[in-house]
Write a protein that binds this DNA or RNA. Sequence first.
DNA 1: GATAATAAAGTCAGGATTAGTCAAAGTGAT
DNA 2: ATCACTTTGACTAATCCTGACTTTATTATC
Lengths: 155, 155
Amino acid sequence: METQNVSDMIEQYLKNILQEHQHIEIRRAEIAQQFDVVPSQINYVIKTRFTIQNGYLVESKRGGGGYIRIAKVRLLEDNQVLDLLITAIGTTVSQHDAIAVVQSLFEDKLISPREASLILATIDKDTLRINDTQTENAMRARILIGILNRLRFKS
Amino acid sequence: METQNVSDMIEQYLKNILQEHQHIEIRRAEIAQQFDVVPSQINYVIKTRFTIQNGYLVESKRGGGGYIRIAKVRLLEDNQVLDLLITAIGTTVSQHDAIAVVQSLFEDKLISPREASLILATIDKDTLRINDTQTENAMRARILIGILNRLRFKS
DNA sequence: GATAATAAAGTCAGGATTAGTCAAAGTGAT
DNA sequence: ATCACTTTGACTAATCCTGACTTTATTATC
C-alpha cells in the first residue's frame, strides 16, 4: 500500500466503480464534497490518472445538468510497436518520417489502407499549413502520437 | 444520456420522431407548452442540437400558420448538403462542432468506429495544443475539411 | 387594395448553474 | 535544498433557461 493522499483515494474510488461499470458519470461538485476537496482537484485527478494512454476516455459538459463522464476502454496487450514508434517520434517529426511511420503501421497490419490514407491527409504539409517548420513538425508529432495512442484501443 | 435537463428531453423527443419520419413539422408554442418551457427555448434546442453539423436542416415560417420543419439529412448524400456543411465550417471550427460532424459521419455509416476514434484524436484540443483558440479552430477546420473532401471522393 | 389586428417565429442579453484553467502555495521524498 | 507531486482558489468558459422585444405572415376591416 502506498501512501494515500486524497488524489489517490479519489482515483481508487472511481476505478473501483469502473471495474463493475463500463463508464461512470459524476458531478464534479459532488465528488469534491464527498472527499472534502476543492472541485478543481477532481480535474487534477482526471488529468493525471485517467489518461488516454491508460485507456480512459473522458467527456464532460458544463452548465445545468453538467457532468463528467469517464469510460474505460480495453487496450491491446501487445503494444510494443506503438510504444517504440511513440518514443521514436518524440516531440517533432518531419512529413517524410511521419509517412514512414504510417507505412510501417500499414505493413504491420495495424491500420487499413483507408485508415492510412486518412492519417496521411491529417499530417500533410498542406493540411497543417504552418509556416515555421519547427512548429509544423511539433504539431505533426502531436497528431501522430494522438493517433498511435488510439490504436492501442481494442475494437 | 441519463442526465436530464429539459433541453435534452426535447431533443430526444424530436429525434425519436425523426427516426421514423424523414422530417417533422412542429408548432413552436405547442412543443413549448408540452414541456412547460418558454417558446424561445425551442429555438435554443434547435440552434444547439439540430445544426447541419448534426445532420439536420431546419426551415420555418412566422405568422399565421407558422411552423418549424426539421429534416434529417446525410452529410455526403449530395454535394448541396456537403457544401452547406463546408460553408458552415468555413475556416474555423470548435471542437464541439467538429465532434458533431464526426458523429454524423459515423451515424451515416460513412466511417467506422475506429476511423471516428482516429479522427477525434486528431481534432482533439489536447492533441492540437494551440494556445490561441482562433488558431486552434483554424487548424481543426483544415483537418476536418481535408477529411471530408477525402471521403467525398473516395467513398 | 390599404390598413389594422392578430398570430406566429426569431433575437438577444442576462442570470443561474455547472465544469475548466492556471499559477501559486504546500508537502514529502531524496 | 531541491524537485516532483498535490492542493487550493480566483478567474474563465460553456450551457441552460427565461422574458422582453422584434420581425414576418396571415386575416379582418374599411
